[in-house]
């Protein structure tokens, strides 16, 4: 300590130092903290003690201080659509649930949902507001539950999952039928004709199918194919109908239109290739590859109704 190096103010005691000196003359002032700062600090100390008791905080043995605060909130069970009142100790997750439950948008959603629930299909499709709601909510439901197979826009995958955005419906495009499809699920089936028909006969039937949809011009081969189709050997008319326009109750496809759901005819360049893919399909049939699961029990009735309207407007059926 070299006192002679302290300046006048320090020597006179006007400014207090900590009393240590480093490197001979390096000292530290010992100024008091500003009063406003000190009071703010005391304030935070008091606040922290209150905080421990009001909110969940310290662990105590096997449990913890749970605080006095409580949060009431309601939640809706997704499957049963039942409303449950719940109460929890204060925590931000419950607070968020309570907030979401009371949000103005949620009130609007609930009001709209009960309106849609009470309305008939015809009323819904004619009401712009309800349709806007159906498209908005349906988009999310479809994305969560259907898009994995049918694609985000319902475009499907040829050979695997039907296209829902076109105007052709394997199982019927009425609201009731779509609803039924959703509730029960569907299973597409076509017997394999390999062994039943000779290879030349398979060729002929394939040729006839192409003529049906205007892909090829009628020929002798297609006439032979027609006989097999309409006769007892093939018996195709049994499911596809005598006019080949399909039978929705069987899930049998309309063969006269431009839509192909399993054999990807439009993608083939030559007539030969088109015939080849059709022949393969007729020979192998469809079994255990076209399965739509039943959604009853997985989705609640409201969601199924919303989805039915949503899917129908994707295809634009009336």
């Amino acid at each position: 300590m070299s006192d002679n190096k302290l300046n006048a103010a320090q020597q006179s005691g006007a400014v207090q130092t900590t009393g240590h000196a480093w490197d001979g003359d390096l000292q530290e002032y010992n100024n008091p903290l500003p009063r406003w700062w000190l009071w703010c600090f005391y304030g935070t100390v008091v606040f922290s003690v209150l905080y421990w008791f009001i909110y969940p905080s310290w662990p105590v043995g096997q449990t913890w201080l749970k605080g006095f605060g409580k949060v009431d909130y309601t939640i809706v069970d997704k499957k049963t659509n039942k409303v449950e009142e719940r109460e929890q100790r204060w925590n931000t997750r419950a607070l968020l649930l309570a907030d979401l439950g009371e949000a103005a948008n949620n009130e609007q959603r609930k009001a709209m949902l009960s309106k849609v629930r009470a309305a008939s299909h015809d009323q819904i499709v004619k009401d712009p507001k309800m349709m806007e709601f159906v498209r908005s909510v349906g988009k999310g439901l479809f994305g969560d539950n259907c898009a994995a197979c049918h694609g985000r826009g319902g475009q499907g995958v040829v050979g695997m999952y039907p296209n829902l955005s076109d105007d052709d419906w394997l199982w019927g495009g009425s609201m009731d039928k779509i609803h039924e499809t959703l509730v029960q699920g569907r299973k597409g089936f076509m017997p394999a004709f390999e062994g039943v028909l000779k290879p030349e006969q398979l060729d002929d039937v394939a040729e006839y199918a192409l003529v049906l949809s205007n892909e090829a011009k009628p020929s002798e081969a297609s006439e032979r194919g027609k006989e097999i189709f309409q006769g007892q050997i093939g018996g195709c008319y049994y499911c596809h109908g005598a006019d080949a326009k399909g039978v929705p109750s069987q899930g049998a496809a309309n063969l006269t239109d431009k839509i192909w759901t399993i054999a990807n005819v439009p993608a083939q360049k030559t007539l030969q290739d088109k015939k080849a893919v059709l022949k393969t399909l007729i020979a192998n049939g469809v079994n255990n590859t076209r399965i739509m699961p039943a959604w009853k029990g997985r989705l609640n009735d409201d969601d199924i109704k919303l989805l039915a309207v949503y899917v129908q407007q994707l295809g634009g059926a009336k």
């Binding site: 985000r152 475009q155 076109d166 439009p266």
Partner: peptide, 13 residues
Amino acid sequence: QPLYTQLSDGGIR
């Protein structure tokens, strides 16, 4: 999504 849809009569939507 989809960019277009082919309809049963061959029209495009």
